[in-house]
Amino acid sequence: MSILATKAAATSHRLAPSMPARAKALLASGTGIIIVLYIILYGLYSIWDPTALTADTVLNLTNNAVPLAIAAAGQTLIVLSRGFDLSVAGVISLTNVIMAAYPLDGPLGAVESLAICLAIGGVVGLVNGFLVAVLRLQSIAATLATMIICQGLSLVILDAPGGTVADFISYDLTDVLFGVIPISGLFVAAVVVLWMICRRTAFGTGLYVVGADETAAHLSGINVKRVRILSFVIGGMLYGLAGFMLSAQTATGNPNAGASFLMLTFAAVALGGTSLSGGRGSVIASIIGAATLMLLQKVLFAGGVSSFYTGIFQGVVLVLAVVFGNVVTHFVERRGAT
């Protein structure tokens, strides 16, 4: 076998998708659609509200969306591997009350708080991962239990809304850098970069394969247990980060702070087009899905719609997002088949 011949043949094929193919794939995927949706929505918003493009509004929107975006990013990892994680609500509540009950001031305090939040999320994720991957409990049952435990612990620490988050965290982390860049946005950017790295590791590929076809993953030599546990641990750490960012934004503690995140993270994941039966989707799409959700809410409620409707609105969006996701999948698959 001549090496020359091999090389020549090897290059006769494209080894990377062409630019048009890439663009087409992006548009057909959930990511493309949600980006377009967000831009259209923002366009409408800016026509209707002239202050939409000011730095202040952008900062506000970003600060609002960041906790949900990060939590949705974490949830995406579990959904990709074909699971549901309810503990997101518990971890966010728990980290939030800890930051309000034990404020640590100054930049060093912020770093310590962040480390504590990540550690709490990581430990909860490890427990979830153990229950789901090793004991093979259903993810809903296991994470329901850990959610209840975390909620209970939050109530033990802080039995009613109150407490104050350290000033450095609540002021400096919600501010802007160089007058334009929201600092909270940088955290999301960091999550995106980490995801892009993660996607290029054995874990990243494993996540998609395990979600799509666990048997095939196993027969291809992937350590399914490890991938599952890791997805819960990283997901949990992201919930911890989300709790940290939420505390920075609200500046106070609430033992029920995480409750609304349960539904909103799923709505964001579904809006981003991630398949709820696993194996297809993207963390970035979920982040934009979260931003879209918050923007939609802002547009509606800035218009004077009573805030009582928030729940109804979010519920409807969740169901519609899932239906929408199914339709897109169907469309993409049908086109892929012909």
């Binding site: 709820l276 979010q314 239906v323």
Partner: peptide
């Protein structure tokens, strides 16, 4: 519509507590 019941009823939870 073949939507996971977990999500449908999570949506219903939100809708009816809102209502």
């Amino acid at each position: 519509l073949r939507i996971p019941s977990f999500l449908v009823t999570l949506g219903m939870l939100s809708i009816f507590s809102g209502l």
